[in-house]
Every structure is written in structure tokens, then in C-alpha cells.
Simulated assay, not measured.
Amino acid sequence: MSTPAPNSSSLRFSRPVTRAPHAVGAHCDIRQFRHTDFGSAMSPLVLVDHYVMTGPTFELHPHAGMSAVTVLFEDTQGWMSSHDTVHNDHRIDPGDLHWTLAGKGIVHTQQPEGDHPRLHGLQLFVNLPRHLKQIEPATMLVRARDVPVIESPGLRLRVLAGTLGGKTSPLNPPEPILIVDGWLDVGARTALPIPSGWNLWLYAISGNLTAHDFDVPESTIGARLSSSEAVAISVDKAGAVELRAVDGAVKFVAIAGAAINEPIVQMGPFVMNSREEAEQAVADFKAGKFGAVKPFT
């Protein structure tokens, strides 16, 4: 019987990826990360936008075949108003998570509100497996006050979705997912358990962060992220990723879910398994099958 090498690990790390911010319209800057930046290791994520928005940017627009998820960080000023064709009018406040399950098709708009708004957050495109792409659309809102928080000296983890450390978010997503909005002080560390067959996407919003296999302390396999860098980690068998802040405090986001091993055809806001399906979604939208948003003030 062979003995595993000291540096063997069940975790596979992509290369770190960084993206410079680019302007979208006159009031929004975005750092955009796409699944093609990380091979297949970003699944179930298709896209992540890290944005700062100060004025109207996205008018009415459709989605289909995926979920569009909005995270507003706690340092947001003002709030975001959300209106959609399932007639859920939501006010998204700092620290909230808003989940738009597009399924077979939805139209929505999300705009900054308040005096001198500065919305700071993430927009996630979370893929749906083939058998859920035609699910009825819906929207869900988790208030900041209802987000479970894990706190200890030098550590604060907000469990926006999923379960961590015995804390479970009230969100009921279409497929299991873990979304953690975290903060570590210098020298602090934490471990994120990840099931077999899942991927973890890790993003250092500010500060420097290291990630390693918790079960292989001697491992040289891992990643060091500087501010605005992201890495994707594939998990061959159930394990845990240890995160540690270096050189100072770090704010990060960790998003983990089961890899969807199906073709991805993205046509703008539509995410399908084939070009024919994507073209059908476009045709359905143009034919008005996604519904209409009620007038609002």
C-alpha cells in the first residue's frame, strides 16, 4: 500500500486572476470575472461583477436559464430598488442579498436610490442545471438582520447562503450553495469545508489572503491573493480550504457550489446549454413571454 506524498492534496487551484475596473455607462465601474477565466473550475458561477454604482445604470433587461444574485456590502450608501415581472418590488439595503431566479425568463431593473448613493457589491450569474432552466421565475430577499454571523477575535463571517459553522442562512436557493462575506484580521485564519464535486470561487476584495488545503498542513499547493484577485478551487473529495490573512486585515467573498458539468452557451443575459436554446430564449423575450413590469414611481 502506497503512502500519500506530503504535498498531495484533493484541492486543485486555478491561477489567480485579476481584472481592472471598467466603466459601464456614466455611473458604474465594474471588475468582471468570467467562467472562461478559470476553465471549468468556476461552476456553478458563470460571471461575477464587482461593482460600485452611483447612479442609474441598468434599465429593464431580461434573464433566463440562470439566477442573477445581488449582494450589497455593508459599506453601501443608499439602497437599491428592484422591480420585476413576478411583481416583487424590493428595497435592497446594505448587507442584504437579493436572489432573482430567472428560470424560463424574467425581466427586471435594479437602480440606486437615496441621497448620494454609492452601491458597493457583487452581481453573480449562477448557472442552473438543465432540468431547472425552465423553472418558474421567482425573487427572494434576505435582510442583513437575518444573515447569520460567525464572530471570534479577528474573524467575522456573514453566511449569506448555505450553512457554515452551525449557522444556516434563511435563503432557499434552487440548488445548494455557500456564499460567505468574510473579514479576517492580520494573522487570523478560518477553514471552509467543501463537499466532493464542488468548486470554490474565492475573491480578495481588499487585503492579502492565502488559501491552502486544511487537511495537508505541509502542502505547498495553494494560492496567495492580493487585493482584487480571485482564484477557483476544485474539490476532488470532501475537504476544507484554510484561509489566512497576511500583512493586514482582509475582506473576501467565498462562493461554493456543485460543479454543473454541462455545456454553457451564454448569449448576454441568457445562459443555456445550446445555441438553439439561447436563441429560443431571445425569441421568447421579444415575443413578450417573460411578462411585463408594473409601472412604478
Rank of each mutant, 00 (worst) to 15 (best):
V216S: 09
P174K: 06
V253M: 11
L200G: 03
G187V: 03
R224K: 10
L157F: 09
E279W: 01
L243S: 05
A258R: 15
R158E: 03
A188Y: 05
T163K: 11
P170R: 10
L178A: 06
Y203H: 12
H212G: 09
G222S: 07
E218F: 11
K286M: 14
G166C: 12
V282R: 12
L200I: 08
H212Q: 11
P217F: 10
P269C: 08
R244S: 12
T168K: 12
S228M: 07
S206P: 01
M272P: 04
S206W: 10
G268C: 07
V180Y: 07
E277I: 01
L225D: 01
S228Q: 12
P195Y: 04
I177E: 00
S274V: 07
I260K: 03
A204S: 15
T220G: 11
L209N: 00
A258T: 12
L184C: 08
R189E: 15
M267G: 00
A223Q: 02
N273P: 03
S274R: 08
T210L: 04
A283V: 05
L200N: 02
D236K: 11
G257A: 05
T220N: 08
P217G: 10
V159Y: 03
V246G: 03
I205M: 12
V180T: 14
N273T: 13
P170S: 13
P174S: 08
E175K: 11
L164D: 05
Q266A: 14
E279A: 10
A249F: 08
G257N: 08
E242W: 04
I260L: 13
E279H: 02
G239L: 01
P174D: 04
Q280I: 00
A232C: 13
R244K: 14
G182I: 06
D185G: 14
P263F: 07
G187N: 15
L200C: 13
D215I: 01
L184Y: 07
D284P: 04
K286A: 11
F285E: 03
V282K: 10
W198L: 03
N172E: 15
E262I: 09
A249S: 15
K289P: 04
M267Y: 13
A232Y: 03
T210D: 02
G187K: 08
P174I: 04
K251A: 10
P170W: 10
N199G: 06
V241W: 01
G166F: 07
A281E: 01
D185F: 01
A287Y: 03
V271D: 03
E262N: 10
F214C: 04
N273C: 07
P217R: 13
E229M: 12
W198N: 07
A281T: 04
R158I: 04
F252M: 09
V159N: 06
R189V: 02
A281H: 01
I260Y: 02
N273R: 06
K251C: 06
L192S: 00
V180E: 10
K286W: 08
L178G: 01
I205D: 05
S234A: 14
G207Y: 05
D185H: 12
A287D: 11
F270Y: 13
R156K: 14
K167Q: 15
G257I: 02
W198Y: 10
L164C: 05
Y203C: 04
S196P: 00
D215S: 14
S228R: 14
L178D: 05
E229H: 06
V186H: 13
Q280G: 02
V235K: 00
R156W: 00
F285K: 02
G187Q: 12
A232K: 02
V180W: 06
G222C: 12
N199H: 15
S169E: 07
